[in-house]
Design a binder for these strands. Structure first.
Lengths: 149, 149
DNA sequence: TGAAACCGTACCATAAGAGTGCTATATATG
DNA sequence: CATATATAGCACTCTTATGGTACGGTTTCA
């Protein structure tokens, strides 16, 4: 439906919270879940996934928890989506091979008249997602200049 | 999974085909389905939906079919997604009320730290989708300058 | 009259998403 | 050492959306 999944949403919330902690401070999954009223078990899964790719660092045991392992400025929406939802695919036939290149896998529509344009649109969408960094998300608001909504 | 649905894909294909026909010419659902190897019944449904919102015009009876009812330049990806998949929602809590404005419906996360930024990102995504018109899709390629994929 | 084509709607099957549970392991604390 | 806390890993269910199909009806051309 062209929407981020809840997992990605939860990841954004959790990581933005972690980003705001003092350097080295920990927050447990339960703590974050309580704070934002999200299902604890699910948030645990998300944090585990984020830890497995190195975006956050985990400390086990009592008084353990999670902390940021990377600079929020270096994590984009595209990165998170890639980890939690799989590669961005504007259309089914557009598969991203590297981080930048796309490959056409139109098996059904041999004469597909929109393949090339979709690839271009896909690139633009990817660029857009890559331009939104967690750093921006963490900050309250960039500039009231163009604030319309 | 942050992807367009197949329905939207089929709509793009069908409408791009219709856009290339001579002014006033008709193409039947079956004809288009055969041409691009997509399921006939499904394409019928899609075209019916497109007709119901006035993007294409239907002519009933034998020798009937569909033709474009609007200028392809005036139909954007955002429009098609809106018709076939419902409103674009980058996150669940971001609901678009008008064509431009968004409304926050965060029921779960009262303290959501990413609501505002997501609204901004949603706007940007919407703008992006609105910037991709069917007219561009129909054209083969804009300029070989930046063609990389 | 019959075939072709759209119309409307309802239906089903599969896959993806959302969420839960359980067991194991690591660590701080008493 | 025992216990509580917390992550790790896995597997499972439930719900929803998507993809696809079917049927009866209406319109039009031949």
């Amino acid at each position: 439906m062209l929407a981020l999944t809840k997992k990605t949403g939860y990841a954004l919330v959790a990581m933005s919270h972690l980003s705001r902690l003092d350097r080295g401070s920990l927050a447990s999954a339960r703590e974050i879940a309580d704070l934002f009223d999200v299902p604890t078990s699910l948030l645990m899964n998300v944090l585990k996934q984020l830890a497995s790719v190195g975006y956050v660092e985990s400390v086990r045991g009592a008084r353990g928890g999670y902390r940021m392992a990377v600079d929020p400025e270096n994590v984009s929406l595209a990165d998170l989506v890639g980890v939690l939802e799989g590669p961005v695919r504007l259309a089914e036939c557009v598969t991203e091979v590297a981080g930048d290149d796309t490959e056409c896998t139109c098996q059904v529509m041999a004469n597909c008249p929109v393949a090339d344009p979709l690839h271009r649109a896909q690139r633009k969408l990817k660029d857009f997602l890559a331009s939104v960094t967690l750093g921006e998300i963490v900050k309250p608001a960039p500039a009231p200049t163009e604030n319309k909504g």
